[in-house]
Simulated assay, not measured.
Amino acid sequence: MNKKYNEMAFSWYKKAYTKKLLNNKPVTKKEFSSFMKATIFSQVSDEYSNQVNVIIHKTFNYAKDRVKKKVAQIDKSNAIQKIKIELPNLELNKALKFAILNDLISCNNTDSERMTNFLKILDNDNNQNKKQGDKNE
C-alpha cells in the first residue's frame, strides 16, 4: 500500500477521532471514503472505482488500527495508571487519549510526571476558582 495514502489516512483518522473525543461523533468509513474520493481520487475514471474502493478500505483500516494501538497504550501503561490514581476526581481518559494520539505525551515515567503536575495545577486552579465563586455569592 502506498505510504502516502496511509499517512494521509492516519492524519484524517486522528482528526476524526479527536472530534469523537470532543463531541462523541463516530468515525465512519463513509466519511473517509467521501473525503478520499473528493480529494485524492477526484480525477480517477469510473473504470478504476473498484481499485479505488480497495485502496480506501485498506487505508481506513490501517489508520483505524494504528490509532487503536496508540490509544490502547493508556490502558497498558503503569505510568498512565499512576496518573489516574493520583487524580481520581478528574475524568482523564479522553484527555489522555487526545494527548497520546497527538504525541503530546508518551507513556514513559518522565512524561507521566510532567502530565501529573500539569493536571494538578489545572485541578488546583479549578478548585480555587470554585472557592472564590462560592465566596462571591
Rank of each mutant, 00 (worst) to 15 (best):
Met1Glu: 08
Lys3Val: 10
Lys3Cys: 04
Asn6Met: 09
Glu7His: 10
Ala9Met: 05
Ala9Tyr: 01
Ala9Thr: 04
Ala9Arg: 03
Ser11Gly: 02
Ser11Leu: 04
Ser11Lys: 07
Ser11Met: 06
Trp12Glu: 05
Tyr13Pro: 04
Lys15Ser: 11
Tyr17Gln: 12
Tyr17Phe: 14
Tyr17Ser: 11
Thr18Gly: 01
Lys20Gly: 05
Lys20Asp: 07
Asn23Leu: 09
Asn24Phe: 03
Asn24Lys: 06
Lys25Asn: 09
Lys25Ser: 10
Val27His: 04
Lys29Ile: 10
Lys30Val: 05
Phe32Met: 00
Ser33Gly: 02
Ser34Ala: 11
Phe35Gly: 04
Met36Gly: 04
Ala38Arg: 11
Phe41Tyr: 14
Ser42Pro: 05
Gln43Pro: 06
Val44Leu: 07
Val44Cys: 05
Asp46Glu: 14
Asp46Arg: 13
Tyr48Glu: 14
Tyr48Leu: 14
Ser49Glu: 15
Asn50Gly: 13
Asn53Phe: 00
Asn53Arg: 08
Val54Arg: 15
Ile55Pro: 01
Thr59Leu: 01
Thr59Met: 05
Asn61Arg: 11
Tyr62Gln: 03
Lys64Val: 05
Asp65His: 00
Val67Ile: 13
Val67Gln: 01
Lys70Pro: 05
Ala72Ile: 02
Asp75Ala: 09
Lys76Met: 10
Ser77Met: 00
Asn78Gly: 09
Ala79Ser: 08
Lys82Gly: 00
Ile83His: 02
Ile85Cys: 01
Ile85His: 03
Ile85Arg: 01
Leu87Ala: 02
Leu90Trp: 07
Leu90Asn: 06
Glu91Asn: 15
Asn93Met: 11
Lys97Asp: 14
Phe98Pro: 04
Ala99Thr: 04
Leu101Gln: 08
Asp103Trp: 09
Asp103Glu: 14
Ile105Ala: 06
Ile105Ser: 07
Ser106Gln: 06
Cys107Asp: 14
Ser112Cys: 08
Ser112Ala: 14
Arg114His: 13
Thr116Asn: 03
Asn117Val: 04
Phe118Arg: 02
Phe118Tyr: 12
Leu119Lys: 02
Lys120Phe: 02
Leu122Asn: 13
Asp123His: 10
Asn124Met: 10
Asp125His: 12
Asn127Glu: 15
Gln128His: 10
Lys130Tyr: 13
Lys130Arg: 14
Gly133Gln: 14
Gly133Arg: 14
Asn136Leu: 15
Glu137Met: 07
